[in-house]
């Protein structure tokens, strides 16, 4: 699976003295395994406890929603990783949806024209954030909070709250279609995750993004044009938001201007449970992927288990807590084995 783990906190994996643990233990020691394990466990539990969980229809729905979550979370991850944030992600999503709806419905243009326009709108919105953050040196929290209002206002202003319904049938292929039972949305998410994992591990630009997030000033004094990196990441954030928005339009077959209103929490939850450091400089595509599935699973499972509607949110919170504490437990187990292993080694 895709993975980026620039900051492997593994001390001397080669010379480690506790033998007999093998590759599995090595995998277990990885920073991003906690959420993967939690997701796998939850999947297993739901599959065993409820009979309608492991049906084609349900798996299709889960994977498609998870695919969408991946893009929403990537939009946040790419700015979290440089130590910033994008509160306006949902606003960008809404703007893109309206751009797509307006061009396809009101103007009657073909998706081949609308989609590039919509993507460009998303990237422009991101660029708007980026340029102001870079030039004004004001915290991204404040800038994107302001732009969230700007974008949301534009969305309601342009659409007047009306959905655009005349979306060409052909455009719904991406959001509704599937290959061998796997939704295109999900496939696209995996491909994008793989690309981003590759970017972070193997490309100069990816490394520079991580370095910028690790310590902006040090990166700058190491010859990285951090302003350009910050700008680029905000453009990418806009792009991911745009893709998520378009996938939603494609799935709905209509462009709902309220799209994106609930992205803020999803984007932070998935990205951060998925191992993106709030302080920047670290991201794991594998964990992000697992965490997108995790969140979808929880929401799905709660309905499968038919929990009391009044307390649903409480359960959601509890399961998220449980899932993230698995990571703490893993880390504790890991460090204690490491400690004892080392102590033995020094004593010996």
């Amino acid at each position: 699976m895709a993975e980026v783990n620039v900051n492997q906190n593994v001390v001397s994996p080669k010379k480690n003295s506790n033998s007999g643990t093998g590759a599995l233990a090595k995998l277990f020691r990885r920073n991003d395994m906690g959420v993967v394990i939690a997701t796998a466990l939850l999947f297993l539990i739901f599959a065993l406890v409820t009979d309608s969980f492991f049906t084609r229809y349900n798996l299709f729905n889960i994977s498609r929603t998870a695919g969408l979550y991946v893009f929403i979370a990537m939009g946040q991850m790419i700015v979290l990783v440089i130590g910033g944030m994008n509160l306006s992600l949902g606003g960008i999503g809404g703007l893109v949806v309206v751009a797509a709806g307006y061009t396809m419905d009101s103007m009657g243009w073909s998706p081949w024209i609308s989609v590039p326009i919509a993507l460009a709108v998303g990237m422009l919105a991101g660029a708007f954030n980026g340029i102001i953050i870079v030039k004004s040196k004001i915290n991204s929290f404040i800038i994107t909070l302001a732009s969230l209002f700007i974008f949301t206002g534009l969305v309601t202003g342009i659409s007047q709250g009306f959905p655009y319904t005349e979306i060409p049938k052909s455009f719904t292929l991406m959001g509704r279609g599937s290959l061998l039972g796997v939704p295109y949305t999900f496939i696209l998410a995996i491909v994008t995750l793989l690309i981003m994992a590759y970017v972070f591990k193997f490309t100069v630009i990816g490394r520079r993004i991580l370095a910028t997030g690790g310590n902006l000033e040090a990166a700058q004094l190491s010859g990285i044009r951090t302003d350009r990196i910050v700008f680029l990441c905000h453009v990418l954030s806009g792009l991911f938001g745009a893709i998520a928005g378009l996938l939603w339009v494609s799935r709905m077959g209509s462009a709902q201007p309220a799209t994106g209103s609930d992205w803020l929490i999803i984007s932070f939850a998935v990205a951060i449970i998925g191992g993106t450091a709030l302080t920047g400089g670290e991201a794991s595509m594998l964990a992000l992927f697992a965490s997108a599935i995790l969140l979808t699973l929880i929401k799905n499972g709660l309905i499968m288990l038919n929990v009391n509607v009044y307390f649903e949110q409480t359960f959601l919170g509890l399961i998220i807590l449980l899932a993230v504490s698995i990571d703490r437990i893993r880390a504790m187990l890991h460090s204690s084995t490491r400690k004892f292993g080392r102590r033995d080694a020094t004593e010996a």
């Binding site: 900051n7 492997q8 004094l221 670290e282």
Partner: peptide
Amino acid sequence: YVSENRKELGLLLNSTIQTNVAITVW
């Protein structure tokens, strides 16, 4: 330029030695 303030301006403290050495030559 080797900074006087290595912790804040010179190094990516939470990154590996590899990242810190190779950062100028990726």
